[in-house]
Computed example of a mutant assay.
Amino acid sequence: MTLNILSEGFVPLLLAASAFFVGILAGLFFAYSVSVVLALKTFSASAYTIVMQSINNAILNVAFGVVFIGSIAVPTVSASVVLLQGDWTSQYGPLVLLGTAIYLTGTIAVTMNIHLPMNESIATWSPASPPDDWTTVRTRWARWNHVRAIAAVISFVIYLSAIVSTLS
């Protein structure tokens, strides 16, 4: 027995909203990986510190906040609907659950557990005398950004696949 929470026509809309939010952050993290990370490799320690501090301050804005929270909330609601309606055996259900798991683990958990603590540390650095291990931090930050970018892109593609499967 399934609990029909939403009309069948609303499910593709909910999945599209999930893909929208996840896709925006996939694009952000991908663009960062293929441009900003490469530029940051060319900077001196003090320039790296100044730029990273500036980026980390600038990204804390309303638009990013709405998209970041939306990219957590909407896919979580989508996965909850799949579970509550018993749709995990449908064509789209497993895709939604997989896409959400990959996104929340590979993108959000990485951001919260790796990037935020590093950003908080970088915020304390003095541009005049960054720590001796600043290149290690830069390399680690970049590596984990690649991980979250890949996870977000994979999740986005999975959500698109889920949408297509609801239309057939």
Rank of each mutant, 00 (worst) to 15 (best):
V147W: 00
L167R: 13
I5Q: 13
L104I: 05
A123L: 06
V11H: 14
L6Q: 11
Q91R: 14
V82F: 08
I154F: 00
P94F: 08
I114H: 07
E120G: 10
L60H: 09
L104K: 00
S80V: 13
L167M: 14
W88Q: 15
A63V: 10
L83E: 12
V82N: 05
I108V: 09
Y32F: 15
S161A: 15
V77R: 07
A151L: 00
Y32N: 11
V137P: 06
L38P: 06
P12F: 08
S44F: 07
T166K: 01
P117W: 04
S121W: 07
A101E: 09
L60C: 03
G9L: 13
K41P: 07
T100E: 05
G86Y: 12
V77S: 04
A26H: 01
P127I: 04
W134R: 04
A73L: 12
T166M: 03
G99Q: 02
R148C: 00
S90A: 14
I154R: 01
P94C: 09
L167A: 13
L38R: 15
V67N: 02
I72Q: 02
M1S: 14
P130H: 03
G65M: 03
F10M: 15
P75S: 04
I150W: 00
L97N: 08
T100M: 06
P94G: 08
I158E: 00
V164R: 08
P130G: 00
K41S: 10
F156Q: 00
P127N: 03
N4S: 14
